[in-house]
Nucleic acid binder design. Structure first.
Length: 276
DNA sequence: CGGACAACCTGGCGGC
DNA sequence: TGCCGCCAGGTTGTCC
């Protein structure tokens, strides 16, 4: 579910409830989702630590605690929200971790498919160290991006989703960025013309920014920290629009598989497979 | 180096 | 209604 805009929205939603709070209780019924530690060790180590800050890096939620860093990845169906009491969210069958706070609130981690990951580490670089550049940061430089695309010979769509190359773009926003930039998803990275790279650089940032402003895309499982659906799903031009008319030219949107992922594009607007 | 594929899981949906 | 196969906002390890 969650790509950069969704994770950013969740972080903004939970941060005010967490910063300054101390963890007093731990409940967990899916020990497997806690990585590198068993439940007892996790519990002993996290109890009495305070949330100092809550941020996002790529698709990770990064909580700086007094002594350690709590890092959560939502993968496909993870949700994170504040449950006010022990049974406030009894309708949610998929809550697997609850952290009780010193103000009586609880942080709930819910995850239907159980792919999500919870890390408690002293050294956050052990988890975040290999991630690529944040696309919304100043460090995402056009000239460097252009150079890196030409140093590789990779199919462009999977490359955009490679978290060590660019951090935070997933299936929805990769498809949308390529559509906006008029680039076929199967183009090879070193064949992109400078004008195409410029457009891609711009549209990656623009579509992610719009995603954040609309609080993410709720295609299925994703909800904000308030339990609401996002609104970006209504603005998507190609994702999930197979056979529907292209908003630019009216041609039916096509779906193919690229790097094992469903890939949506307009065969008319994103026509060129070789040199743009 | 790049790409294809299976695996990790559960649930929703379309088709028959 | 019911069963079946397919699909899903992600990542990792293996193999060629």
């Amino acid at each position: 579910m969650p790509e950069l805009p969704e994770v950013e929205t969740v972080v903004r939603g939970i941060r005010p409830w967490l910063v300054g709070r101390t963890i007093q209780t731990v409940w967990c019924n899916r020990e497997k989702q806690i990585k590198h530690l068993n439940l007892v060790a996790f519990q002993e180590r996290i109890l009495d630590q305070q949330f100092v800050n809550v941020n996002r890096r790529a698709k990770y939620i990064v909580c700086d605690l007094t002594h350690d860093t709590l890092i959560i990845h939502l993968k496909m169906t993870g949700r994170l929200y504040i449950g006010e009491t022990d049974n406030a969210n009894e309708v949610d069958r998929w809550v697997h971790l609850k952290l009780g706070l010193d103000d009586g609130n609880q942080l709930h981690f819910s995850d239907c498919r159980q792919f999500g990951e919870i890390h408690l580490v002293a050294d956050k670089a052990s988890i975040l160290g290999k991630l690529g550049v944040e696309p919304l940061s100043e460090a995402f430089d056009l000239a460097v991006f252009n150079q890196q695309l030409h140093q590789r010979k990779r199919i462009i769509k999977p490359l955009l989703m490679d978290q060590t190359f660019l951090a935070g773009v997933g299936n929805i926003y990769a498809d949308e960025s390529l559509f906006r930039a008029n680039i076929h998803p199967l183009r090879v990275s070193d064949t992109l013309r400078e004008s195409e790279v410029t457009a891609l650089h711009h549209h990656i940032r623009a579509v992610l920014q719009e995603g954040i402003e609309r609080e993410g895309s709720s295609v299925s499982w994703y909800r904000t920290a308030n339990g609401k659906r996002g609104e970006m799903q209504d603005q998507l031009a190609v994702y999930n629009r197979t056979n529907q008319p292209c908003i630019t030219c009216g041609h039916p949107i096509q779906k193919i598989i690229v790097g094992q992922r469903g890939t949506h594009f307009c065969p008319q607007c994103q026509m060129n497979l070789t040199s743009g």
